[in-house]
Design a binder for these strands. Structure first.
Lengths: 116, 116
DNA sequence: GGTTCAGTGCAACCAAAGGTTGCGAAAGGT
DNA sequence: ACCTTTCGCAACCTTTGGTTGCACTGAACC
């Protein structure tokens, strides 16, 4: 099912603000806490905390540049996260399909014995 | 990007306990707060709250049966959630690929001008 | 060199969410 | 009738996302 490490990644990308931040870092390239906060409805400090969380799980890494800290997405780690997303999706999808097959089988056997 | 409705679905399936609950409801069929709590590391009340959350966003629905309340996954809604999961995954995947292409292009132009 | 300005980090504080315990109420089995 | 099981509600604790306020540092400008 899901391990502790998986849950860390999940909870990291589960937050809507952090998802948007990853989106921004991917679409606009590396950015700082201040630059990100300008494009988000939260303060710089909130962004800074989120960056710390994402950094801890390895989804991004910082690169000090003078007085700024440039954050950048770790592509390999994000690829891993995406893989886990699709894995859960695939699991649920498969179970939904199985349930549907069973439901259809029941429906068939019910209509088969309808004339009794 | 992400709408408010999307975020509701996300935060619903973002919680590890709720994800496991959905897993259990899919694999073992309908269940009650008590039956689920027996297979989870949390109390019945915690499970009950999660069930309420999942019910509010429509991912599951309850069916009162005597003194019990049987909860069951809403397949259509879960299918929608899965679609959103894979949508985000696909977006990030595409951006990762684009970044990789750009990086390779830069690498090429760098090695081209290496002999100067 | 000193002043000023933008970017950061740290600490205190607040509200919401996940989790717990304790209790009373209602449906079932004996 | 009694006891058990399941549930819902309320109070409480802890974590987390968010805020404000302040002190610090690198860079630019005089």
């Amino acid at each position: 099912m899901s391990t502790a490490v998986d849950d860390e990644l999940w909870s990291a990308i589960g937050d809507p603000t952090r998802r948007t931040m990853i989106d921004l870092l991917l679409s606009d390239g590396p950015g700082t806490a201040t630059s990100l906060s300008r494009r988000l409805p939260v303060t710089r400090q909130a962004v800074s905390k989120h960056l710390a969380v994402l950094d801890r799980v390895g989804l991004i890494h910082a690169e000090p540049a003078g007085r700024e800290r440039h954050y950048q997405v770790d592509e390999a780690q994000l690829a891993r996260a995406v893989a886990q997303l699709s894995a859960v999706g695939a699991t649920w999808d498969a179970r939904l399909r199985r349930i549907k097959r069973i439901a259809e089988a029941i429906e068939r056997s019910r209509t088969d014995s309808e004339g009794e």
